[in-house]
Design a protein around this nucleic acid. Structure first.
Lengths: 120, 120
DNA sequence: CGCATGTATTGACACTCGTCGATCCAGGGC
DNA sequence: GCCCTGGATCGACGAGTGTCAATACATGCG
């Protein structure tokens, strides 16, 4: 198994792959996995992911504010968390920042729960 | 008793099923989904789930203490969180309490991330 | 250049969480 | 009955989180 041990030094990037139902997870892997769940452990962030999942194109930050009813700084805060977890991608278009969902990360996450280990 | 258990008491503890990539999730559903992720947003709880996933039979509380290196009260605390999220099942055998994984809940959780509910 | 606008970051605050030690609650022996 | 033992709960404490207002950072436009 090609584990991503060094990438963690920079940040816990990708929504990666220790299958929760697979072989024993070491404390290190548990920390990585937990950090991804922590990114999803907020209703507003769940909604952000859901909104992006249903959006065909990247979404501007300014769109989230009215949808979530949050101040601009708070929206940035949540997007940053999801970005750090490797669930989102950021793209700068002029003055605006557009966020989109990393669908690969999401399907890898589905594999984490699959009894026999999903795609990979 | 004067706790804000209102939401928790009312809402079903099931690790249920609003697909994150499915149709729009209302704030209510987002809260439910986030509460499940919150249950998994801790390294020790991830390890507990992993240990139970690999165990053929229910595991006694006393076994977790040395494995996790946590005090007895802390282990109970984590197990209670996972139980409340509907991820675990509890069984009392005399003086001992045995916990096991609700595998249905786990596979439902996998479906939450699947684009249309079940490729493979 | 200066200015307006969209994002990111910071400071402060209330709140929640994870942890321990101590205490309380059941069951099972004696 | 009493005591022992495993588990749950409580009290307290430090650490972390979510929120806003305010501020700093870019980028584009006049």
């Amino acid at each position: 198994m090609t584990r991503t041990l060094l990438a963690e030094a920079v940040s816990p990037p990708v929504a990666c792959c220790a299958p929760v139902a697979g072989p024993d997870i070491d404390p290190e892997g548990a920390r990585t996995l937990a950090s991804i769940f922590k990114a999803l452990a907020d209703p507003h962030r769940v909604r952000i992911v859901n909104l992006l999942a249903n959006a065909e194109e990247p979404v501007c930050v300014c769109e989230f504010m009215p949808l979530l009813g949050l101040a601009q700084g708070t929206v940035s805060f949540h997007l940053k968390k999801l970005l750090a977890a490797g669930l989102l991608e950021r793209e700068q278009r002029g003055t605006w920042a557009y966020y989109s969902l990393d669908r690969d990360a999401l399907s890898r996450l589905a594999g984490v729960f699959d009894p026999q280990g999903g795609p990979r």
